[in-house]
């Protein structure tokens, strides 16, 4: 997995690419720290270029939501497609994180 962060319209937009699996634990820690440190109150994770996510990837997204929530920041998942969208649905992540098309 790789990511880039850009700030636009008062929100931080993170474009995530590749595959998000348990082996991305170090990168996810770095990403969460960057999202906690930047000034934007709204952190949007653009999943349009993410090809695959596993159960540990879902767990790490929930950690991001929890840590951002502790700093009163909003965490949004956007534009998931294919396998990623199906896994978000099966894991019922929409009950815990805002998901936008």
């Amino acid at each position: 997995m790789d990511y880039t962060i850009a700030t636009k319209d008062h929100e931080a937009q993170v474009l995530m690419t590749g595959r998000l699996t348990f082996n991305d634990h170090a990168k996810l820690r770095a990403l969460i720290k960057e999202m906690l440190q930047n000034a934007s109150k709204r952190q949007v994770l653009d999943l349009s270029a993410l090809e695959f996510v596993d159960s540990a990837g879902i767990g790490m997204l929930l950690i991001a939501r929890e840590e951002l929530s502790n700093l009163d920041k909003q965490f949004v998942l956007r534009k998931a497609t294919g396998q990623v969208k199906r896994v978000l649905t099966v894991a019922q992540l929409g009950k815990l994180i805002t998901i936008e098309d």
């Binding site: 699996t21 348990f22 634990h25 996810l28 820690r29 969460i32 720290k33 596993d54 159960s55 540990a56 767990g59 790490m60 929930l62 950690i63 939501r65 929890e66 840590e67």
Partner: peptide, 25 residues
Amino acid sequence: EALCNALLHGNLQMDGIGDLSVDAL
């Protein structure tokens, strides 16, 4: 998922990430 379970919880005998925190990660 079956391979991750075999690897982490099986052969490496590890628990999962657990709590929802960067410290746990």
